[in-house]
Structures are given as C-alpha cells and as structure tokens.
Amino acid sequence: MTPILEVRALSKQFRSGGVLHPSRLHAVDDVSFALTPGRITALAGESGSGKSTVAKLILRLLESTGGELVFDGRDVTRQRRRRGMLEYRSQVQMIFQDPFGSLNPAKTVRHHLARPLRVHGIAGRRDVGVRVEALLEVVGLVPARKFADAYPHELSGGQRQRVAIARALAVNPKVVIADEPISMLDVSIRAGILNLMRDLKELGIAFLYVTHDLASARYVADDILVMYAGQIVEQGPVDEVLASPLHPYTRLLIASVPDGERTLEPIEIRKGTAAAAVDPPPGCRFVDRCPLAIDVCGRETPELVETEPDRIARCHVTAPRQREDQLHAQPAA
C-alpha cells in the first residue's frame, strides 16, 4: 500500500543558552519514515529521545527547522493558511497521554465529540447527537447517551481515554498519532485500549504509536522505529527487531524491560551520561554507553544502513556500510 504520510529528513532544533553561550538542542535530527493506512508504526524511545517532538511536528504544533512533511502527496511543511490547516487537522489527529488532561474539565463528553464534528462541517446541528452516540459505541462506551452527558471527572481513566479516542475518530482521520496513550492508565485497563487500537486498524487508519514500552509496542504495532538522542537508530518489523536487535541501544532497551521470564542472556551495560543532543560533535551519539564502540564511532556519525530487506540500523559495528552494498549487489535471481 502507498504511504499516506511521509516524513523526510525532519529536523527540529531549539536554541538555548542565551546570548553569551548560545547552544542548539538537536531535538529531532534527520528523521525519515512513512505511515501506511491499516498499519500501526511504533515510535519507541526514552524521554529526551525526541519521539514526542516528532509527534508534535507531524501535528504542526511545532514548526520544523528542516525537512519535509508530505501528506497524501502534498507538501504540508509550510502550510499556514487557515483552510489548508483545517483540512490537514481533519485528517491527522492525536490521542494524548494524560486521559484527564486532554479533556476540558468544564465540558461534557458530548461537547468534546461535537466540536470537531461542527468545526469541520461533518455534521449539522440535527445529526450531531446521533453521530456522537455512534462514536461512543465504536469505542465501547455504552449506553452512549449516559456517557455523552457525563463530565470528565465522572469517568475512570480508561473511559476518558476512550472518549479521547472517539474524539480523534470523529473527523474520520487518515492518520492518528497516539502519544503514550496507556502509560497513565491502570495496568488492567491498558489491555482494553490496546485491543481497541488493534481493532481500529481495520478502518484503514495509519497509526503512529509513540511509547517507551517495548512490550506494548510489540503487541500493537507492525513496524517499529527506535529513537535515541533525536535520531532513528533502528527500524524494521516489530517482531524481527525485538527478536534480533541490531543496534546496541535497542539491545539495551530490550534487556532493561522487566520481564518475569528472563530469556535473553545478560549483556554488559556500561554506565555513562546520555549523549547530549546539545551541539553534538561528530560521531555516534551512543558512543559513551556502547559496549561495542570502536575507534570510528567517536569520529564519524553512522548512517542508516539497510542490512537486510526492511531492517535498517545506524551503527558502524552491526550495520556497516558494506552490508548495504552487499545487499544491493546481490544479483536478482
């Protein structure tokens, strides 16, 4: 299937430090990937990796400092006109992390769902009510009428998050970005939301699932992108990446997840400060913590290299340039 949203070499730098010691934070650095309808892509990384910034850039809540955003074949990077933005906003939606924070405490559920319907002209005043209740049924909040009249504080965390999902679905979006949608929910409620997301794939929506939790990424997503210090360090189908990770950081992440059954062999983790994405020098940003680091890692920033079909990593050791050349040099059968 053709991708609906393409991110090309997207960058975002923040200036800080004041006049005397100006510095740039490379929050997002040369990030490229594509979202395809009917597939869930996980964007995994820890805090400071830039994953939430990528989400905000896609939603145009922040302006990028480099790169392009192509939606449905159109370049929307610099789109500023109200009509264009409104159209984009009706196609690309977001589910936030905090189920309570993302709902206005002073408004009913009905208001939250009706507003997008009205703003984008999807429903007139007469059929808004019917639409609202239909949406609530899709996300499993029945009886719909009771939930429509409720205020956020009357609902549980899981129910609020379902309202947030319903709100995102109200405009029939093509892309939905979910930013850590379950991390603030109770454990037993998370399953319901994850299952809902899996089911919504059938509607042909392209999901971007931003998370730091690899286990839920595996459960829900088809592909995974691992980010570190603003860069993508590994990319590929989720099962393959988690079963045989290429990048040392991915290995570190996998090994750190609390897992009742420890099936992976213990690996050595070297402690060090996280490579700052502030004025980064040339070289791999993971070099201070990497157990596999060799000489070149401190001098040259590794490029993303495709070692096998669909398996991409940014590492001099596990994904060196030659492998990609070998891959492409193989004669067609």
């Binding site: 906003r89 939606q93 206005n104 405490p105 002073a106 703003v119 984008h120 709100r167």
Partner: peptide, 27 residues
Amino acid sequence: RDFVLAAKVAGESTWRIVFGELVPNMI
C-alpha cells in the same frame, strides 16, 4: 495542558479556545 492542545489539533480557532476552553477553567 493537553486539552488545549487537543482543541488546537481539532482545528478550533484562537478565540474559541480562549473563550471556550480557557475561560471556563479560570472562572
């Protein structure tokens, strides 16, 4: 706060956000 960002993402205009989302929470 996320609900303001959510309104923005939903396409609300600045004035509607100021009077419809912010003011009711500052009453």
